[in-house]
Amino acid sequence: SDFTIRIGDRTLHLKNVSEEILKILEELLRRGIDFEELRKIVEELIK
């Protein structure tokens, strides 16, 4: 499924993301992860 994360004025667009990855990202966001850290993790996950 497609997913968009907005943190402040920044946006991260994800396409064809599995439910498992979404759950991980949601947990990281709940813990207050930094946007740049989140972006790096996402890039690793979707390689």
Results as ranks from 00 to 15, higher is better:
Gly32Cys: 09
Lys23Met: 14
Glu43Arg: 07
Glu37Asn: 08
Ile33Asn: 08
Leu29Gln: 06
Gly8Val: 01
Gly8Lys: 03
Lys23Thr: 12
Glu37Phe: 03
Ile24Ala: 13
Ile5Asn: 00
Ser18Leu: 01
Arg10Ala: 10
Thr11Asp: 04
Phe35Arg: 02
Thr4Trp: 07
Ile24Gln: 14
Arg31Gly: 07
Asp34Ser: 12
Glu37Val: 07
Ile7Leu: 08
Lys40Gln: 13
Ile7Gln: 02
Arg30Trp: 05
Arg31Thr: 11
Glu20Gln: 08
Leu25Ile: 15
Leu28Thr: 08
Leu22Val: 15
Ile24Ser: 11
Asp34Met: 07
Leu38Gln: 01
Asn16Val: 03
Thr11Arg: 02
Ile33Val: 09
Leu29Gly: 04
Asn16Tyr: 04
Lys47Gln: 13
His13Gly: 01
Asp2Trp: 02
Arg30Ser: 12
Leu38Ile: 09
Val42Asp: 01
Lys15Met: 08
Ser1Cys: 09
Leu29Arg: 03
Glu36Pro: 04
Glu44Cys: 10
Arg10Thr: 09
Ile5Leu: 03
Leu25Lys: 00
Lys40Pro: 09
Glu37Lys: 05
Leu14Ser: 00
Thr11Phe: 08
Ile5Ser: 00
Leu28Gly: 03
Leu28Arg: 05
Phe3Tyr: 11
Gly8Phe: 03
Lys15Ala: 07
Thr11Lys: 03
Ile24Arg: 11
Glu43Gly: 09
Lys47Met: 13
Arg30Asp: 11
Ile5Pro: 00
Thr11His: 08
Val42Lys: 01
Glu36Val: 07
Leu12Tyr: 13
Asp9Phe: 03
Asp9Lys: 05
Asp9Glu: 09
Lys40Trp: 08
Ile41Thr: 12
Ser18Asn: 10
Lys40Asp: 13
Glu20Met: 02
Phe3Trp: 03
Glu19Ile: 12
Leu14Gly: 00
Leu22Phe: 08
Phe35Val: 07
Asp9Ile: 02
Leu14Cys: 02
Asp2Thr: 01
Ile5Asp: 01
Glu20Asp: 14
Ile7Trp: 09
Glu26Ala: 06
Asp34His: 08
Leu12Glu: 00
Gly8Met: 01
Ile5Glu: 00
Gly32Asn: 12
Glu26Ile: 08
Glu19Leu: 08
